[in-house]
């Protein structure tokens, strides 16, 4: 089997696609093929991985044009051609390794940490019902693999809009939907370029954790932004105050 892997350094000098011959074994993953190349053909190949069990989200790469977790993407029998590229939306570090720092930085503006009304007393426990916590729990399944960034049209085609990106919205939603949260993040996500998202659902379809990013994180935020601007709602809030 031929596996073509993108090779380059950080400055993308002599970026090239190198084809390696890898023996196929049944049940083999893309990560297994990369490990084989590194161990037997070229020890200088760089790629990220950690748990090898689909739980840490370190090993995302574009396999045949589609970003996936390489540790759980099976190479099907008869697959003759396999190409592996880094997540192209991020600055390259080396070969398949990219730098997530720009995305991490944007998260800082979203107050993506728990913000309850009051500090808890030591030893106190919350009373929460299962139905109250489900929305937030879904968002907490995120493993920060950044595959959703790689498929996002806004991030790929319009970097000047400075969009915070789907994963960061999921992180913000994980806090926003905490039943005891009191901070309204609608203005923050609006500043983060939320309106640029045209809900094509690409992020949702690519999420290895099955998080309904568009439906359950992005659209609720969009609704919050709109309702915060609705003159009637503004008036209603004033009256209620």
């Amino acid at each position: 089997m031929k596996v073509r892997v993108y090779r380059s350094d950080a400055r993308q000098r002599d970026a090239k696609l190198i084809a390696y011959d890898v023996p196929y074994t049944k049940g083999m993953r893309v990560l297994t093929a990369l490990e084989f190349i590194q161990e037997h053909l070229d020890p200088t190949l760089s790629f990220r991985w950690n748990c090898g069990a689909g739980q840490c989200g370190s090993c995302a790469a574009e396999v045949n044009g589609k970003p996936v977790l390489t540790c759980k993407t099976e190479i099907r029998e008869g697959m003759q051609d396999l190409s592996v590229f880094p997540l192209k939306v991020f600055p390259p570090v080396k070969d398949l390794v990219v730098d997530f720092a720009p995305a991490q930085k944007k998260l800082k503006d979203l107050r993506a940490h728990f913000t309850p009304a009051r500090e808890k007393k030591p030893g106190e426990f919350y009373r929460l019902q299962e139905w109250q916590v489900q929305a937030a729990q879904e968002m907490r399944k995120c493993i920060d693999c950044f595959i959703c960034y790689d498929v996002c049209h806004v991030l790929r085609d319009a970097p000047h809009l400075n969009f915070v990106g789907p994963r960061n919205l999921v992180k913000a939603a994980a806090q926003e939907f905490h039943p005891l949260n009191v901070v309204n993040r609608a203005p923050l996500v609006e500043q983060g370029g939320l309106s640029a998202c045209n809900v094509t659902r690409c992020c949702t379809e690519s999420c290895p954790q099955g998080i309904q990013i568009t439906q359950n994180a992005i659209i609720p935020f969009k609704e919050r932004v709109i309702s915060s601007k609705d003159p009637f709602e503004k008036l209603l809030k004033k009256v209620l105050k």
Binding site: D9, A10, Q38, P43, T44, S46, F47, V93, K94, D95
Partner: peptide, 8 residues
């Protein structure tokens, strides 16, 4: 190779 992301 070099010190940059050298898994070996």
């Amino acid at each position: 190779g070099s010190l940059v992301y050298n898994q070996d």
